[in-house]
Simulated scan of single mutants.
Amino acid sequence: MKLSVEQIEQLFTFTKKHFVEHYDVQVELVDHLANAIEDQWKENPNILFEDALQTEFKKFGVFGFTGLVEQKQAQLHKYYNKMLWNEVLRFVSIPKVIITAVFYLGIFYLLNYYTYWAENVLLAIMFISFLYLTIDGFRFMLIIKKEQKNKQRTWLIQSVAQSVFSLPIIGFGGFYFNMFGHFFESSNELSVLGMHFLSLFFLLHFILFHVFFKIIKPKFKNEIRQTEKRFQFV
């Protein structure tokens, strides 16, 4: 026995009813449930569709599909976090470590010999780039929202992308503004340790900025396009 088109639609409705909003996860669950129900019918053709569905649903435990969705989100977050930090670490490994060291020493030299001018210029550049990252992050998330509304479908990868691009705003926003406030207040009074710290902070900021825009964002865009292609006829 095979499921009818109407029963397949009932499975999609069932997954939506149990808080699975992402279409790619819905398809995966519907495929799993359909195969499991058909396997039950092989053993006992008299089992009702609803009874077979409830039997399979109970196997997901008290939290239903929620645990599966959270697990998939956690896996994607882990994947992209690992990618982010691996790309950052590339800047302290051969051969990029040479460029990183030269950049760091150049910042420290400017702060050491042109303290007031260099400090304020560096902080201004950092502040502007942080604002740009924030605005572009919001713009990227709005584009995703618009695509979801137009296509009436959401993908799990979109949800993770929105979360990752809100990280600089939500996760580091307060820290950045505290840093800006501290250094602007103590302008031209930097100790040697303070110069090293600001040089390191500025360097890390631009490495993260580069990784976000040159690697992470294009990767997300490509993954979203590939997901759309994979499910366009489903």
Rank of each mutant, 00 (worst) to 15 (best):
M1F: 10
M1C: 10
L3A: 05
S4R: 01
V5E: 11
E6V: 12
E6C: 01
I8Q: 07
L11N: 05
T13C: 14
F14I: 08
T15F: 07
K16S: 09
F19K: 14
V20G: 02
H22G: 01
Q26T: 04
L29S: 06
H32K: 10
I37L: 13
E38I: 13
N46P: 03
N46K: 15
L48D: 15
D51L: 14
L53T: 04
G61I: 11
G64M: 00
T66G: 02
T66Y: 09
L68A: 06
V69P: 05
Q73A: 02
A74Q: 09
Q75K: 15
Q75H: 15
N81V: 08
M83A: 08
M83Q: 09
W85G: 00
N86Y: 04
E87V: 01
F91R: 03
V92G: 02
V92R: 01
S93A: 02
T100Y: 08
G106N: 14
L110M: 14
L111F: 04
T115D: 11
Y116L: 06
A118V: 00
L122P: 04
A124K: 06
A124T: 12
F127E: 11
L133I: 11
I143S: 06
E147F: 02
Q148H: 06
K149V: 12
Q152L: 09
L156P: 08
I157K: 13
Q158L: 07
S159G: 14
S163P: 00
F165H: 13
S166Y: 15
I169N: 11
G171K: 14
G174V: 11
F175W: 15
F175D: 05
Y176H: 14
M179H: 09
F180R: 05
F180Y: 15
F183R: 03
F183Y: 15
F184E: 01
F184N: 06
S186A: 09
N188R: 11
L190R: 01
L190I: 02
V192G: 03
V192Q: 07
L198A: 07
F201A: 13
F206V: 04
V211D: 04
F212W: 03
K214T: 15
K214Y: 04
K217I: 10
P218F: 14
K219G: 05
E228D: 12
K229S: 09
Q232G: 02
F233K: 11
V234D: 13
